[in-house]
Design a protein around this nucleic acid. Structure first.
Lengths: 206, 206
DNA sequence: TTTTTTATTAATCATTTGTTTAATTCATCT
DNA sequence: AGATGAATTAAACAAATGATTAATAAAAAA
């Protein structure tokens, strides 16, 4: 029984999109060839244009969906009204690290293709203003109460994301430098789930 | 009067290499076309193959040189015998941030193309083991003396690089999110030169 | 069932792209 | 000046690549 998670798209369209997403994530737009997408999804080459008009259009659809998923998951945690700042840090850290263990190509892809076309980013970023999130509000509160040092919030947010995301972006380097196996790297990232919130707190606590 | 900084290469070769490096850094291997390199460097298309055999060979040369420069500058600071750990942090932060302000495409390029072919990384990484650097030794000393918390050194090094490099990799996102101009972003990064060393110290200090 | 619409296919087209060739210019040496 | 080798050029080639077409099969509507 099929769950109609995406009723907008037919089976064939989903097959194409899945294969395309996988390839685009791994190799980027230019290095991914339409024939490769067709082969990987077991469809005829012409169906790609039949359903998606062009490679570029297909790419843009995938780009927007991927970006949307990515940012939505972020903002969920940041805007939770019930959790404290420290809890948010723990949840963020844990959630994103899991997310990127599952899809290791995601951060590089987002960062890369956004460099070429930041306009798609704006389309998605409507209700997802991290800088106006509950997390930032809680940090500012802490500053006012004299609990936290005053840093510009953009640095605060940047630091959190840096410590979480950068290791994944640079994973090939870390793996080579440390002569790790893939599982060792995952192990290392799992350890960071607990460490990163502590580090962030130490950075801001008076 | 020409300074024979690179006597190995003729004028034409240098023109080609410069244009190619610029394009490869900006757009990656696949998206950069040989005709574009020829046009940008004002040389005939055939000269590219005449001097460098193939696009791929040219790319590999540029890749290795860029990587070499990048890592050399890193290790210089890390292995300075005269400076303290805290001084090294300040120097690192300041030096790399300047470097990436000058060449904003560098980190994304390195990270990207290394993902596809980490072998070139190993060729370069001979004498440049960051993990066996003076910096790490000094940190370990500090731990023994009870000054610093004990974290695995790989996390220590990863954190430094994360806080320095990630903002540049994600600069299009930061710029859009904060509605910054390019100069505002540079301003922000210049502020981080002083902040990052402090943050790192707070993270490790007991 | 018949008709009409939709989905799929193989073949082909028109560019693009990396590379090569063969001719020409330029510089160097005798 | 003339000969030799390197540097440069315009033209062309072959393969790859994104896209289209026209024919066929499958599904839906009548």
């Amino acid at each position: 029984m099929n769950i109609p998670s995406d009723t907008k798209y037919s089976d064939t369209e989903i097959k194409i999109k899945n294969a395309a997403k996988c390839l685009f994530l791994k190799k980027g737009f230019s290095a991914t060839k339409t024939r490769e997408i067709a082969k990987e999804s077991n469809i005829n080459l012409a169906l790609l244009n039949y359903y998606f008009t062009s490679k570029r259009k297909l790419f843009e659809i995938i780009m927007l969906e991927t970006l949307h998923d990515f940012l939505s998951k972020m903002v969920e945690v940041y805007n939770d009204e019930k959790t404290t700042l420290e809890e948010k840090l723990k949840l963020t850290s844990s959630k994103y690290i899991d997310m990127m263990i599952a899809e290791p190509h995601l951060p590089t892809f987002v960062v890369n293709e956004l460099k070429n076309d930041p306009s798609s980013f704006l389309k998605i970023l409507k209700g997802k203003m991290i800088m106006k999130s509950k997390l930032v509000a809680q940090y500012n509160d802490g500053v006012k109460k004299g609990l936290y040092k005053k840093i510009e919030p953009i640095h605060f947010v940047t630091n959190i994301l840096s410590l979480i995301v950068f290791p994944f972006i640079s994973s090939p380097i870390i793996i080579k430098m440390q002569k790790l196996g893939k599982n060792d790297f995952i192990e290392m990232m799992n350890k960071r789930k607990k460490l990163i919130p502590k580090w962030i707190i130490q950075m801001i606590k008076k």
